[in-house]
Simulated assay, not measured.
Amino acid sequence: MSFFNQRGIFLQLMRPSPSEPNTLVSLQLARKELSWDAENQQQVEALVDSVFFTATSKDLGNSFSIGNVNKDVDRDGVIGAGDKAKLEALAKAYAAIINP
């Protein structure tokens, strides 16, 4: 996350291996909150409002599926298929990046 943007998305890609036949993308959406640590006299950064999802692909990253999405990630006021579709599209786009 940058100084100017207090929201962030953290992604981790795990390609298929002998122990895991699927492509997995771990997604964490969070907000950075700044506070003051009076005892140490320094500013402290903390991630708050974090939500985690795991997207799974059985076709080497061509399509992804996510289980239950119970958070309004696109902030349209509705928790549903739109949120799930956006997260799955994000996982697919990230898996397609060769050199992140």
Rank of each mutant, 00 (worst) to 15 (best):
residue 1 M to K: 09
residue 2 S to D: 10
residue 2 S to W: 00
residue 4 F to P: 01
residue 4 F to V: 01
residue 6 Q to M: 01
residue 7 R to C: 11
residue 8 G to T: 04
residue 8 G to Y: 01
residue 9 I to S: 03
residue 9 I to R: 10
residue 11 L to R: 09
residue 12 Q to D: 12
residue 14 M to Y: 02
residue 16 P to N: 04
residue 16 P to G: 01
residue 17 S to A: 04
residue 17 S to E: 02
residue 17 S to L: 03
residue 17 S to R: 00
residue 19 S to P: 05
residue 19 S to M: 10
residue 22 N to I: 06
residue 22 N to C: 09
residue 23 T to F: 10
residue 23 T to I: 04
residue 24 L to T: 01
residue 25 V to F: 03
residue 26 S to M: 10
residue 26 S to R: 14
residue 27 L to I: 11
residue 27 L to A: 05
residue 27 L to F: 04
residue 27 L to K: 05
residue 30 A to M: 02
residue 30 A to Q: 03
residue 31 R to K: 15
residue 32 K to F: 08
residue 32 K to G: 05
residue 32 K to A: 09
residue 33 E to C: 11
residue 33 E to N: 13
residue 33 E to M: 12
residue 34 L to I: 12
residue 34 L to C: 11
residue 35 S to L: 07
residue 35 S to M: 02
residue 35 S to V: 03
residue 36 W to V: 13
residue 36 W to R: 09
residue 37 D to L: 11
residue 37 D to C: 06
residue 37 D to I: 10
residue 37 D to F: 06
residue 38 A to S: 15
residue 38 A to Q: 15
residue 38 A to E: 14
residue 38 A to H: 13
residue 39 E to R: 12
residue 40 N to G: 13
residue 40 N to Y: 10
residue 41 Q to I: 12
residue 41 Q to G: 13
residue 42 Q to S: 04
residue 43 Q to D: 08
residue 44 V to Y: 08
residue 44 V to D: 15
residue 44 V to T: 15
residue 46 A to Y: 05
residue 47 L to N: 05
residue 49 D to Q: 14
residue 50 S to L: 11
residue 50 S to R: 12
residue 50 S to M: 14
residue 51 V to F: 15
residue 51 V to Q: 14
residue 52 F to M: 13
residue 53 F to H: 00
residue 54 T to M: 14
residue 54 T to E: 14
residue 54 T to A: 11
residue 56 T to H: 05
residue 56 T to I: 07
residue 57 S to N: 07
residue 58 K to Y: 13
residue 59 D to N: 14
residue 59 D to P: 09
residue 61 G to V: 06
residue 64 F to M: 14
residue 64 F to D: 06
residue 64 F to P: 01
residue 65 S to H: 08
residue 65 S to T: 08
residue 66 I to N: 08
residue 66 I to M: 10
residue 67 G to S: 04
residue 68 N to I: 06
residue 68 N to A: 07
residue 69 V to L: 04
residue 70 N to I: 02
residue 73 V to K: 04
residue 73 V to C: 03
residue 73 V to H: 03
residue 75 R to H: 02
residue 76 D to M: 08
residue 80 G to L: 02
residue 80 G to Y: 04
residue 81 A to P: 13
residue 82 G to S: 03
residue 83 D to L: 02
residue 83 D to N: 07
residue 86 K to H: 13
residue 86 K to V: 08
residue 87 L to Q: 06
residue 88 E to D: 01
residue 89 A to P: 01
residue 90 L to S: 10
residue 94 Y to Q: 06
residue 95 A to H: 00
residue 96 A to L: 11
residue 96 A to C: 09
residue 97 I to H: 02
residue 97 I to Y: 00
residue 98 I to G: 14
residue 98 I to K: 15
residue 100 P to K: 12
residue 100 P to G: 10
